[in-house]
Design a protein around this nucleic acid. Structure first.
Length: 272
DNA sequence: TAAATCCTGTCA
DNA sequence: TGACAGGATTTA
């Protein structure tokens, strides 16, 4: 599923390919994917051009020349694909943003949980940005900041990592992978982690997210980049989706349990 | 805090 | 053929 590394991959690819591109038209066949409503989206973005591609957590922020921002959340199965006019229709294609030079930005969504949302102005953009916790790859995300986040939370560390209000951009794959790398059991209560464990976890989060970006994300499921290509971090994951297989570190069989209602993969021997 | 909700392809 | 997966929000 698209988490921080996947959205960051899409962000940088779009920046490279369509910065400055002008929006000519928007068409759709599922209204609920366009917020606040399709007509408003069309009216706002047609005629404008893309000036900047940003990201906050898993939310892609496409800034426009008219001061508005088109925000995209891909949830579990959303894709943004860059195609040429006349290319064969993509699977689950529901929104097409027609650009200059016969290009199309297509939004495909199998489960229809994701959305494209117009943010009218800077104020609306800032309001949404501040709903998230720190960006885990920014300079102000330090072990001390992580310590502060965890110290007053009496719930499972896995749950705390998934809450976007605590840290922005970590989803099920990278939560499990980070906890494995830090040798921390996913059900440990957040406020019981030692200083050195927090340091390890902080490092694991940063190393894993950076490496996943380098490999253009993980494609265990529907995720694809804007060219329709799979990410290659899939081959590097140690626990996510590897239940029943041996741990790469000790050979113990990887277990899958449910934590906070989410499938959670870990090594019962390595993670304490 | 836990469960239901949205949605549909995949798997048992 | 029914259970399951899952991000974020809503409801119990």
């Amino acid at each position: 599923m698209p988490e921080l590394p996947e959205v960051e991959t899409i962000r940088s690819q779009l920046e490279k390919e369509i910065k400055g591109a002008r929006i000519k038209d928007v068409t759709w066949d599922v209204s609920k994917l366009l917020l606040p409503n399709p007509e408003k989206v069309k009216q706002t973005i047609v005629g404008a051009s893309f000036t900047e591609f940003g990201r906050r957590g898993k939310l892609l922020l496409m800034k426009l020349s008219n001061g508005a921002t088109l925000a995209a959340h891909l949830k579990l199965t959303g894709r943004l694909l860059l195609r040429k006019k006349g290319d064969p229709k993509d699977e689950w294609q529901h929104v097409v943003i027609s650009l200059d030079k016969d290009r199309e930005l297509r939004f495909t969504e199998l489960r229809k949980f994701g959305y494209l949302k117009v943010l009218q102005d800077q104020k609306e953009l800032e309001k949404i940005k501040q709903e998230y916790g720190p960006e885990p790859l920014s300079a102000d995300f330090t072990p001390e900041v992580l310590n502060k986040i965890l110290s007053n939370k009496k719930s499972a560390i896995k749950k705390v990592l998934l809450d976007q209000k605590n840290i922005a951009g970590i989803g099920n794959i990278y939560a499990d992978e980070s906890l494995f790398a830090a040798k921390i059991h996913p059900e440990r209560l957040a406020n019981t982690l030692t200083t050195s464990e927090i340091k390890e976890l902080h490092k694991a989060i940063q190393v894993i997210l950076k490496n996943a970006i380098k490999h253009r994300g993980t494609s265990t499921d529907a995720y694809r980049d804007i060219y329709g290509e799979k990410g290659t971090f899939t081959q590097l994951r140690k626990v996510y989706g590897r239940q029943g297989k041996p741990c790469s570190n000790c050979g113990t069989i990887i277990k899958k349990i449910v934590v906070g209602g989410r499938g959670t993969h870990f090594c019962p021997h390595c993670q304490k």
